[in-house]
């Protein structure tokens, strides 16, 4: 889809966050890693809150995680999402120890439960934007 026809909010990446979005466009999920103490942190930001290093690396992560909490959106607070209702917003603990949020695909709202194993996938929204989604992960 061209950007003109897309009606949902789009991110405006900064110098600090652009590598995250660029990687999504390549079908990869990357998380910031402190070059000093090797801690992962999310969302992207310029300083490590433990060692205060401003040197950053980006680590590709598994995209495997489990559900920490969730909501099911039934009301359109933005017109761009009206046709998608209801949708599940999944707060997920990634195996690597950081948390992220994305829509959960292919799971009925009454099947959603804390601990549900999930795997990240990628959906192209526009020529310039790919968004992460989660799908139920079978097995371990």
């Amino acid at each position: 889809m061209s950007e003109d026809a897309y009606t949902r909010p789009v991110p405006e990446p900064s110098r600090d966050t652009r590598p995250y979005w660029d990687a999504l466009n390549e079908g990869r999920l990357v998380i910031q890693e402190c070059a000093g103490c090797k801690r992962l942190r999310h969302y992207p930001r310029p300083v490590c809150d433990v060692c205060y290093s401003m040197d950053v690396e980006w680590r590709q992560v598994s995209g495997r995680g489990s559900l920490h909490s969730w909501t099911v959106a039934h009301h359109p607070f933005h017109p761009g999402f009206k046709t998608e209702l209801p949708y599940v917003l999944a707060t997920v603990d990634l195996e690597e120890g950081v948390r992220m949020i994305a829509q959960l695909r292919g799971v009925a709202p009454d099947e959603v439960a804390v601990g549900l194993p999930v795997q990240v996938a990628f959906e192209r929204a526009t020529d310039q934007l790919t968004l992460p989604v989660f799908r139920k992960r079978e097995g371990k």
């Binding site: 949902r8 909010p9 789009v10 991110p11 405006e12 990446p13 900064s14 966050t17 969302y43 920490h68 909490s69 969730w70 909501t71 959106a73 009301h75 607070f77 933005h78 999402f81 998608e84 949708y87 917003l89 707060t91 949020i101 994305a102 829509q103 804390v114 929204a125 934007l129 968004l131 992460p132 989604v133």
Partner: peptide
């Protein structure tokens, strides 16, 4: 931060942002 990373996936308004806190408490 929410505007960049969460609103594009449909996490827009306080009701949606806060609901997972309530759900976690219930669980």
């Amino acid at each position: 931060t929410v505007a960049e990373f969460e609103m594009p996936i449909g996490n827009i308004a306080p009701a949606q942002l806060y609901a997972p806190m309530a759900r976690r408490h219930m669980e």
